[in-house]
Amino acid sequence: MTDDSEIDGLVRRLRAGRPEMSEPAFTEGRARLLAAVDRAPGSLPEPPLAARRAARPTARRLLPLAAAVAIAILGGGVVVVSVTGEEIPVAPPAGPEQPAGPWYERPLPAIPAEPRNDAGRLGENATDLVVAPGEYLYIERRPRGRDTAEPARTWIPADRSGTWQRTTEDGTMFGDGGRFDTKVVGWWHPDAGFTAALPRDPRALYRQLVADQWPREDAPAAAFRKIAQLLADAVPADLRRALFGTLGYLPGVAVGAETTTGDGRTAVPISIDDQGFHRIVLLVDPATGLLVGGHQVQLVDAPSGREGGLVPAGTIVGEWTADYAVVGRMGDKP
């Protein structure tokens, strides 16, 4: 059995004969919903930022847009944000280092008055490689421990809104502004326009992450991964500086002592625990504020896929390093 469809077909047969939803259950569920609607027909618990953005999908304006004040009730704190983006009352002081609650019910808390960690210093020396018009920033991300694996290579034009190339084991893609395989632009699919519109103030960036969080699992770790994705694309230094500053406000983020990457370069680790399963570790070159490596640490024992196999807690999985260069043409290697 090798085909994915055969595997899915087998899974589909499991418990396929379960009875359909009964009419009484359907009716009762509908009645409960309508009763809730009747109790609060017009009130909306939070401002419809998302819907406003959806109504203007091309406008990547920063929040808040139209409301005079927006009130966000998140976790333990209340933040009132004016149209200028300034906070009126301050949220509770910096809380415990680790986010509260189980990871699957963990929203981003309101921004504390002071940073929770010193991630911001990682961006203090952020610099960009000089890419002249017509040249390309070349990023090579190489998995370690898999010598036969091809690295992922990205070519970014001097004008980041131009055409990018990304070549991975799965093939080569081209995308205007770095938008490769999606029509949706956002944190998970940032293109040049999205990153250009992001604020350069760490607190404003944090507030945007709060407003944009999907009320789902482990929002601090999700925000960390969103930022990591932008850093991996070597976004301009002013934005990297702000992103490191924002990481300073995220609960659960730890900045470690200077270490070395798998290939021996000096780096500072910054990490967060993701859903209780992995610790995501990014390695930052303190001289440039560029990501030069990273890995994940297994936090719990997990089946390895081999019969009876186990990946014990503490195992490093998915280690990689990154190199940067400037090349003259898309597709060229340094």
């Binding site: 919903l33 618990p45 401002p47 419809p48 998302a50 819907a51």
Partner: peptide, 12 residues
């Protein structure tokens, strides 16, 4: 879904 409807973003 009703109580959290403000979080629903059609763009996502």
């Amino acid at each position: 879904a009703w109580t959290g409807r403000a979080h629903y973003d059609p763009a996502r």
